[in-house]
């Protein structure tokens, strides 16, 4: 992130717009979009008295759509920033990540223009995610790489399943892909459950309590209103919800614990990347959601060696060994 000296100097001069700031803004906008547009508007349409609440509902739905467009603009903005930053670093991982961003941006543009085979678009977007995830995983230690590997493999399995189904819709034969969906479900939950360990997030006791509450809320939501909750899981995250409810409750708790732990450690770039993976979900939904995942992997690649800070804000960076290549988290 921004170096402390720069960040605290009043009226500091310098600094073109920073990639970290764009990624953080993207994470915030995508969370708002996820909560309002993808979740609230899809459930609130069933409020019995909605006709009487039509104006507030439409205002909120419009706000959700606006959050989507803000998120989309920030996503588009982040891509050239990321390429410039990553390529300029000169090390192998950063350049692979930059290539992944370029590959994704070109593919998304081609897909929007409807100028290429849907199979090609599927393969290239999944490939871009794998490349970005590999670059991010290569900059992490083994547990972090394992966690990112679980996410990327889940994404690749779901994406390959979609690709094969799209191949069928193009007339290229039909293929059984149930095992891919099943494997992706397990791996996505493994990613969620192992995220606190993999990303070395150290949540406070309060955060652990909040995470436990979130897990209970998820469990209760699945028991009390399994229909809506599971449909939202499928729509928003690409999860079919076929495993026991307790698995999703543990996953939700672990995700929140990780996010709060990263926030406590002030590892904001890693936090932004982690949040973007969640708002993007697994599998191919739209180039927007895939873009969030790519941006998330870029953020994790940049912030992988970001020094955790203690609750008092003391940087431990000075004592930590340097990353392979130069640390990307330094100011630009």
């Amino acid at each position: 992130m921004v170096s402390e000296a720069q960040a605290t100097r009043p009226g500091a001069v310098s600094a073109p717009l920073r990639l970290e700031l764009v990624l953080a803004g993207l994470a915030v906008a995508s969370v708002i979009e996820l909560l309002i547009l993808r979740t609230f508007t899809r459930t609130a349409v069933h409020i019995p008295a909605l006709s009487e609440l039509r104006d507030p509902y439409e205002a909120l739905a419009s706000l959700g759509r606006y959050a989507y467009y803000v998120s989309a603009v920030l996503l588009i903005l982040s891509l050239p920033f990321a390429v410039a930053r990553l390529w300029g670093r000169g090390d192998l991982y950063a350049r692979v990540a930059a290539a992944a961003v370029v590959l994704f941006a070109l593919t998304a543009a081609v897909a929007r223009a409807d100028a290429a085979s849907v199979i090609l678009v599927d393969v290239l977007t999944v490939g871009a995610v794998i490349m970005a995830a590999s670059a991010a995983a290569a900059r992490m230690d083994a547990p972090g790489a394992l966690v990112l590997g679980a996410f990327a493999t889940a994404f690749a399995l779901q994406g390959t399943s979609t690709m094969l189904q799209d191949a069928a819709s193009q007339g290229y034969g039909s293929y059984e892909t149930r095992w891919m969906l099943w494997g992706a479900e397990w791996l996505a939950l493994a990613f969620a459950a192992l995220a606190p360990l993999g990303l070395a997030a150290r949540p406070s006791r309060l955060a652990l309590g909040l995470a436990a509450i979130a897990g209970l809320v998820m469990f209760a939501a699945l028991l009390a209103n399994g229909s809506t909750t599971k449909i939202l899981l499928l729509w928003n995250e690409g999860l079919a919800g076929t495993l026991p409810s307790v698995a999703y409750a543990v996953g939700a708790a672990a995700l929140l614990a990780t996010a709060l732990g990263l926030l406590r450690q002030r590892r904001l770039v890693v936090l932004a990347g982690f949040v973007l993976l969640i708002t993007g979900g697994i599998g191919l939904h739209s180039t927007y959601q895939t873009g969030l995942v790519v941006a998330g992997m870029v953020a994790l690649c940049i912030g992988a060696r970001e020094a955790p800070r203690t609750a008092r804000g003391t940087a431990r960076a000075a004592q930590e060994p340097s990353a392979p290549g130069r640390p990307l988290a330094s100011s630009s």
Partner: peptide, 26 residues
Amino acid sequence: LALAAGALLVIGGGGIGLGLYGLREG
């Protein structure tokens, strides 16, 4: 489909290789 599978395998294999190389370097 062979081309698509090949592309995925190359990218996936390259990714795993890169990850392992990064871990070793780290």
